[in-house]
Design a protein around this nucleic acid. Structure first.
Lengths: 208, 208
DNA sequence: GTCTATAAGGAGATAGAC
DNA sequence: GTCTATCTCCTTATAGAC
């Protein structure tokens, strides 16, 4: 007879639970908009207990953001990694990123908060540990798509074309020409892919 | 003999001075990151005096943001209004917007804060009074550039292509392929214009 | 219009019991 | 590891003198 561990699902460590439950708070309200008391209430601990796990609020915030990014990173890399022509991988990535931004509103907001953060230490930490890997993959794809263009700028444009549409999500509904189907990530992805496809095709023509 | 007014430069009203001096504070630190004490110190008043001019902190913030946007609105509309082919006006606008975002960092940050604001009342107020006019002009240009495309999505893409590059400004330096000249607004404008020019040219070819 | 003074509560962080 | 209690400082906002 095989002995089973008493708890099949091992109880998650408190530290991880704090990160998981505080991340959406920071995503929605930003660093200044969330107090240690808020976090404690969300986790079901007292404020003082948080200081057993994290040196201070800054560290908690930093770890929570990094935790959320690490969770998505794998998904984003998978979109880019598979086989297929560069053009096909681009379409897969654009569609995947659009779906992620549409589904995972908290993640989108977290990105926005990080970009706005004026604390240089936090900025560079998150840039290096969290954005860099994702960007490298798109950067490499960009140089495959058109070796004659500046891959850095092209990669940023690809990110921008997708992300900006969702950043303006709440505002867009008040703008002329808005129709609900534009909020559909597939519709947006098609728009972005078409725009890029045409541009890249024309660039290829010019290079010849 | 011509009588001159005693004060050539009329003393600006305090209310306007508060808006002008508090706007950069909100731009850099956001709503939660600026206290009434901070504003008072910047203007050279006591905290209590602010409440003579504004009902509460919310109103001060809202008015300060609207004030800053009104100042730039004219400039942005001028870029679009003049004569020239749609293609020429697009290039003028992209170059002008890029220059503005590069020069006027506070304004860029203010845009980002507004997009992140989770207060729906503030969101819709600013969207309607402040973003809408700018968007309309670009929307109209977009439908001239290519009547067969969704002008709403194309307009958003034009904004996104320019603005996102500057949003990531602080982070970009840690990314691969970064070179300082990419921070130059003229270099970025050229990249964006080329990308769009090619895409539009190809679309024209396909339509025929 | 601007001041001083103050109310009333929220913030981050720590000490020490259990 | 988590608690209660508390320190100290900062927050928005108001009352009333000048």
């Amino acid at each position: 007879m095989i002995r089973q561990p008493i708890r099949i699902i091992r109880k998650r460590k408190t530290r991880e639970e704090i990160l998981e439950l505080s991340a959406p708070l920071f995503a929605r309200n930003g660093y200044d908009g969330v107090s240690m008391r808020d976090v404690a209430a969300a986790v079901g601990l007292t404020q003082a207990a948080l200081y057993y796990h994290f040196a201070d609020k800054d560290q908690l915030y930093l770890d929570a953001v990094a935790y959320e990014f690490r969770e998505r990173e794998a998904a984003l890399k998978d979109m880019l990694a598979g086989d297929g022509t560069p053009r096909e991988r681009l379409e897969r990535f654009v569609a995947g990123l659009a779906r992620m931004m549409a589904t995972d509103k908290d993640f989108l907001r977290l990105v926005q908060w990080v970009l706005l953060d004026s604390d240089e230490a936090r900025q560079s930490t998150l840039a290096k540990h969290v954005f860099r890997d994702m960007f490298v993959a798109v950067h490499d794809l960009a140089s495959e798509l058109d070796p004659h263009q500046d891959a850095h700028l092209l990669a940023m444009s690809i990110f921008g074309l997708v992300i900006f549409h969702f950043q303006t999500g709440a505002t867009r509904q008040f703008m002329p020409g808005h129709r609900p189907h534009q909020d559909n990530p597939e519709v947006l992805a098609r728009h972005v892919c078409e725009l890029l496809r045409r541009s890249l095709a024309a660039a290829e023509g010019e290079a010849r």
